Structure formats: C-alpha cells, structure tokens
Computed example of a mutant assay.
Amino acid sequence: MTVDTRNAFATDLLAWFDRHGRHDLPWQHPRDAYRVWLSEVMLQQTQVTTVIPYFLRFVGTLPTLRDLAAADEDTVLALWSGLGYYRRARFLHRAAQICVEQHQGELPRDFDALAALPGIGRSTAGAILAQAHGLRFPILDGNVKRVLTRYHGIHGHPGQSAVEKVLWQHADAHTPDERVADYTQAIMDLGATLCVRSRPLCSGCPLAAGCVAHRDGLTAQLPSAKPSKAIPTRSTVMLVLRDANKRVLLERRGPQGVWSGLWSLPEATDHDGAWRAAQQLARIDDAQALAPFIHVFSHYRLQVEPLLFDDATAHRAIADNPSLRWCDTGEIAALGLPAPVRSLLQSLQGIMQ
C-alpha cells in the first residue's frame, strides 16, 4: 500500500498544531490580508516575541492598508524604528500606495500581482494567500527551510539556489489541499518552537519518526551553515550637536546605503573631520567624547565614536536645508531613527524620556 507522504506529513503536523500551536497571535484575530502581510514582513529576520509589540503599535496607528498608504514616510519609519532592515518598511509603504492606485485599496488575491508588489516575494505572497484566504500556496521562510532540510536530510546551505529549488519542491508536496491557513502556521510554529537552530526538541516533534536528521544524528549539522566570510569593521564619528534648549541636530540620510531616508546624526570619518563638520553646522566651543559602541550589520561591523557638542548655536543656513533640523524630545520620538542612534540619544539626560 502506498502512503501519501504529503498527507501523512500534514496530518501529523496539524494534529500537533491543534494541541500545541500558537492560536492567539495578534495577527490571527482577525486574520485578514493586511495584518498577515504586515506580520510576515515584520517577522523576516525577527523573532515573534520582538515583533508583537511593534505589530500592535503599528496597527494601532495605521489599522488599514489605506491608512498605511496615506501616512507620511516619517510616521512609517518611526513606527518601524528598532526593527531594523528599514527597506522592509519602505517596501510596505510603497506597496500599500500601489494597492490604492491599482487594486482598489486591497492586496490582490492573484499570486502574480501580489508577488509583483515591492518587498513581497514568493514565500510572503504564499503566506498571505494561504493564511488570509485559505488558498493552496506553499511557503518557504527560514523556519520552514530548517524543518524541511532536517526532515529530508538535505545538505548544502538553504540559501543556495539549487538547494532552495529542492526545498520549494518539498514545500509544495507537503502543503495539503485543506486547512492551508492552519498548516502554514503549523509548520512555521514547529520551526520556531521545536525545530530550532540549536538543540531542537525532537522528543516532542510530531515529525520525528520520519525525520532523516533525527534518525542519522544530523540535527546539529543541518541546515548546513553558510560559507563563512570575514566581516569587516568600519569606523565613524557621530556628531551630537545640542543647543541651549537641549534640541539635537538631526540629518536625514540620503537614499542610498544603510539607514537610507532615516533621521540620524551627522557623521565624519575622523575627529578632525568631525570638528570641521561641526563648525560648518554651528558655532561650537568644546566637545565631549561619549562612550564608543559597535553596531553589527549583516555584512559589516560599525564602530561608532560619538562626540557631544553642547550649547551649539546653529548657523542660519541650517534653516534652509530640508535635510537638517533641530529636534526636541517629542520630535525625536516621532521620527524614524536607527536603533543605535535612538539608544545613544536616550542615554543622554535631557534628550529623550
């Protein structure tokens, strides 16, 4: 007798989900397309426990797709501030605007049209259609990749195109025809709670009996690690110019590079450059070196040396530059700032509450 492995896999997983899955995540109530989409984008590179307060704050301020489309970029980035990978927020914003312009203010239910929107790839489109509409589309996020890699004993880094192609084939084969929304949540839950990166809890896994990695003692080796590459370190000096009213001078970053479009602190490559830059921006008397820190990006480490210039007097030219503005505590809180810059300002008494 031939066993339908897709249904066996899905049946066991759904039975586990009914007893142990996560049924009270905020984007599940209601589980509409906008909330699913927002949660899927936030969950890229980010844990559920971190995402929940950001999600609640975001939908509390922008409860619908049309609200998101109508918001200004500073509002969107301020709500996103701290989640990192800010391009995700810009893609959300632009995709919402396109939906208003071209799709009657709704996320399209057609897969190709949905996947064509900025920031929505194959897996995110599948998750939206499966969870919000119950349509049969597979997903392949990081958790699902880990589950399928171990279950089928697939070697090679999951990010490699050949390996990913095989994983998509398995993802499609295992996706059932019914209860697709629950199945999609179930396989993500399994990867997030049991089939975790290190020390997976195989004793509680509903798929352990058929898992190659569990059978062969390969759970520590699979998924295969990404080929290592040395991470370079870059240095910058951040200028904290603060006037007599304790306002801080912020500069909007350009459209390219990290933190593009966010409000941040002016920067220089070294201390001499920092002094020259500060003198061009304001009249200054002295500088205080603040505690240096390191911020780690995916592809390099940034070593930051902050310099505080207190009681700075702005040059009049600043008022004519839309990329520069003096901000008090309330204004800073309402802007999109990189997380390490916000933390730096929060550490200075009188800057932020």
Results as ranks from 00 to 15, higher is better:
residue 296 V to G: 12
residue 80 W to C: 13
residue 192 A to F: 08
residue 86 Y to T: 12
residue 349 Q to G: 14
residue 178 E to N: 08
residue 313 T to E: 15
residue 122 R to N: 10
residue 105 G to N: 12
residue 156 G to Y: 05
residue 132 A to W: 04
residue 173 A to K: 00
residue 117 L to N: 11
residue 92 L to E: 03
residue 117 L to M: 12
residue 241 L to P: 00
residue 134 G to A: 08
residue 216 D to S: 05
residue 309 F to V: 08
residue 298 S to K: 13
residue 283 R to Q: 12
residue 27 W to E: 07
residue 27 W to S: 04
residue 2 T to Q: 09
residue 184 T to C: 00
residue 58 F to C: 10
residue 270 D to R: 11
residue 212 V to E: 00
residue 225 A to C: 08
residue 141 D to M: 03
residue 285 D to N: 11
residue 52 I to E: 13
residue 154 I to W: 04
residue 273 G to H: 06
residue 87 R to E: 13
residue 132 A to I: 02
residue 279 Q to G: 12
residue 207 L to G: 07
residue 112 D to N: 14
residue 212 V to P: 01
residue 164 E to L: 04
residue 220 A to H: 03
residue 5 T to F: 10
residue 340 P to R: 09
residue 21 G to P: 00
residue 250 L to S: 11
residue 140 L to N: 05
residue 313 T to Y: 12
residue 269 T to M: 04
residue 276 R to C: 00
residue 74 D to H: 15
residue 216 D to M: 00
residue 175 T to Y: 02
residue 3 V to Q: 05
residue 269 T to S: 08
residue 59 V to S: 02
residue 1 M to W: 01
residue 299 H to G: 02
residue 50 T to G: 13
residue 206 P to Q: 10
residue 254 G to E: 13
residue 254 G to V: 13
residue 160 Q to E: 02
residue 192 A to G: 08
residue 249 L to E: 04
residue 168 W to N: 08
residue 343 S to C: 13
residue 315 H to G: 12
residue 172 D to N: 04
residue 153 G to L: 08
residue 219 T to C: 01
residue 237 V to A: 05
residue 81 S to Q: 14
residue 161 S to F: 01
residue 334 A to D: 10
residue 336 G to Y: 09
residue 257 G to T: 15
residue 12 D to K: 01
residue 56 L to S: 13
residue 185 Q to H: 08
residue 63 P to H: 09
residue 277 A to P: 05
residue 183 Y to G: 01
residue 66 R to D: 15
residue 15 A to P: 02
residue 101 E to G: 11
residue 269 T to Y: 07
residue 27 W to V: 05
residue 189 D to Y: 03
residue 148 L to G: 04
residue 144 V to C: 08
residue 325 R to M: 12
residue 200 P to S: 01
